[in-house]
């Protein structure tokens, strides 16, 4: 026992050696990791918990993630209960009060208004989010609002670099606004067009582009598509004039392909998050590629 105590003391001593000054950011999703890099560049070190090929609703509270949360100064996540199946467990085990609450805990969905906030919640309705739809990363205006709030948070936590964060934000905002104009011009022909979607993850993209969704492959959010439900969608997809059946890079393409074969409407994979495919290397690439693919479906 005494040896063990000595070992503990030595380890804590080693741990409390001068820490590197860089702010450490733990991003739950690649999109927020990328946004943090846009705003902070090399001023911070960013750890990303998930990849675009994983379903962030259900990630495991892996030991490596506990270690990352333990060392973080700032947590940047979607919030709105998207990460409820794993993030609370990471926070509970990591013993890091800096990010458990307060300024070190940044939830993107809390910075903007969310859509599809249910009036009542019941698990019979599937995997519903009481705080609204958390998949906000595909609305560029919301992303910009999050960027501004995140930039303020970075400046608050790391005052010596506040000026640099502000400069980076101004630069990002200029490029982002220019890109929004370009994207909106490109997406003009998509206005009023209908799509069928796999999961309820596209509401922000569709409302930005003035498109609408006429059916979902999942009978209820988070419940895998059933053949009966898919068969029921055949008529809707055809008669509704859907231009595509959308699914995210992390989702199983089979249900979309099944419906595509029976309706002639193309199944269209979209990257959904940064890293979802080869072209979506950063936030700009994510939007460029998403719009390329959507506009491509018109032809």
């Amino acid at each position: 026992m005494r040896k063990f105590a000595l070992f503990l003391i030595l380890l804590s001593a080693a741990a409390s050696a001068p820490a590197e000054a860089k702010l450490r950011v733990f991003a739950c999703e690649t999109d927020w990791a990328e946004l943090t890099r846009e705003l902070a560049g090399d001023l911070v070190a960013v750890d990303t918990a998930t990849t675009a090929l994983q379903d962030v609703h259900v990630v495991e509270a892996k030991p490596s993630l506990i270690a990352k949360v333990r060392n973080a100064d700032l947590l940047v996540c979607s919030g709105a209960q998207l990460e409820i199946g794993w993030l609370p467990q990471l926070l509970m085990q990591a013993g890091n009060p800096k990010v458990a609450s307060g300024p070190g805990n940044f939830m993107a969905a809390s910075q903007v208004t969310t859509l599809e906030k249910p009036a009542s919640v019941d698990r019979a309705g599937g995997d519903v989010h009481p705080d609204g739809n958390p998949h906000i990363q595909l609305d560029p205006y919301r992303v910009l609002a999050v960027a501004k709030a995140l930039d303020a948070r970075l400046a608050e936590l790391d005052p010596p670099n506040a000026a640099a964060y502000q400069k980076n934000l101004a630069d990002f905002e200029t490029r982002w606004n220019a890109a929004i104009a370009r994207w909106e011009a490109k997406a003009a022909p998509l206005k009023g067009k209908a799509v069928v979607v796999h999961h309820a993850s596209w509401i922000y993209l569709l409302s930005w582009l003035g498109m609408h969704e006429i059916g979902r492959l999942e009978p209820k959010p988070g419940v895998p598509p059933t053949s009966a439900h898919l068969a029921g969608l055949i008529d809707t997809t055809k008669s509704g004039g859907a231009i595509a059946i959308l699914y995210a890079a992390y989702q199983d393409p089979k249900p979309s392909e099944w419906l595509s074969e029976r309706t002639g409407v193309p199944a269209l994979m979209l990257p959904f998050s940064v890293g979802g495919d080869g072209k979506a290397k950063d936030l700009f690439g994510l939007y460029d590629d998403t719009l390329d693919r959507l506009v491509g479906a018109l032809k």
Binding site: L144, A145, D151
Partner: peptide, 15 residues
């Protein structure tokens, strides 16, 4: 951060 805050609010209104 005040300026950033105002900018954030402006953008929030836009959204």
């Amino acid at each position: 951060s005040r300026d950033a805050q105002i900018a954030a609010l402006e953008s929030r209104i836009h959204a």
